[in-house]
Amino acid sequence: MISDDNRRSLVTYNHITYLLYVVSYFTAGLLWIVPIVMNYAKRHDADGSWLATHFDWQIKTFWYSIVFFAIGALLITFALGGLGVSVMADSGNLAIGSILLTGLGLLIMTFTFIWHLYRIVRGWVALTDSRPVP
């Protein structure tokens, strides 16, 4: 069990990490690394409390977002390479496939962006209400 002072400190700490995730949207994601490092640094201080769910929630949100965003980016990169080949080979079918694959990659990246923002907002609201996140 954690003391009241430690709990208040960890609540403030979590508010800061949630804020940094939101601010990272305005830095093209360059600030993403700061809150994840902060979460790993303090995660064990919250063991056994409802605050531990917030550290885990933010860590999972970060890693799943990275994985899905990378999948989307790889699909786009692969598709744009295929588009280049189709132009060189004058192949309309390959170009259509590349455009569809690019669209899929963009869809995955858009979904990831919205999902990430949703999780940050949902977690921050739960923290403000002094509730754990699932």
Rank of each mutant, 00 (worst) to 15 (best):
S91N: 15
L100C: 11
I2D: 00
N93D: 13
S9Q: 13
P134V: 14
D4I: 05
L20R: 03
P134Y: 12
R8Y: 05
P35G: 08
V85Q: 07
W63F: 14
F78A: 15
L75R: 00
Y118A: 12
I108R: 02
N6D: 09
D45S: 12
L107P: 00
D45I: 00
I36V: 15
G84K: 03
D56K: 15
L51F: 05
V11I: 15
D4S: 11
V125P: 00
V37G: 06
I71N: 02
D47K: 15
T112L: 04
D4M: 07
L106G: 12
T17G: 05
R131D: 14
H15I: 09
I59Y: 10
N14Q: 14
I114Y: 11
T12G: 11
A41I: 10
S3D: 09
P132V: 05
L107I: 11
A46V: 04
Y118C: 12
V11W: 08
Y118E: 07
L31K: 00
Y118L: 12
L101F: 11
D90R: 09
K60H: 10
F78Q: 07
G103T: 06
S3H: 04
R131A: 14
G123E: 02
T77H: 08
L31W: 08
I66K: 11
D45H: 11
F26G: 05
L107R: 04
R7F: 09
V23E: 00
G81S: 10
W63A: 06
H116S: 12
V125R: 13
F78V: 12
L31M: 12
D5Q: 10
I2K: 02
S91G: 00
G84N: 10
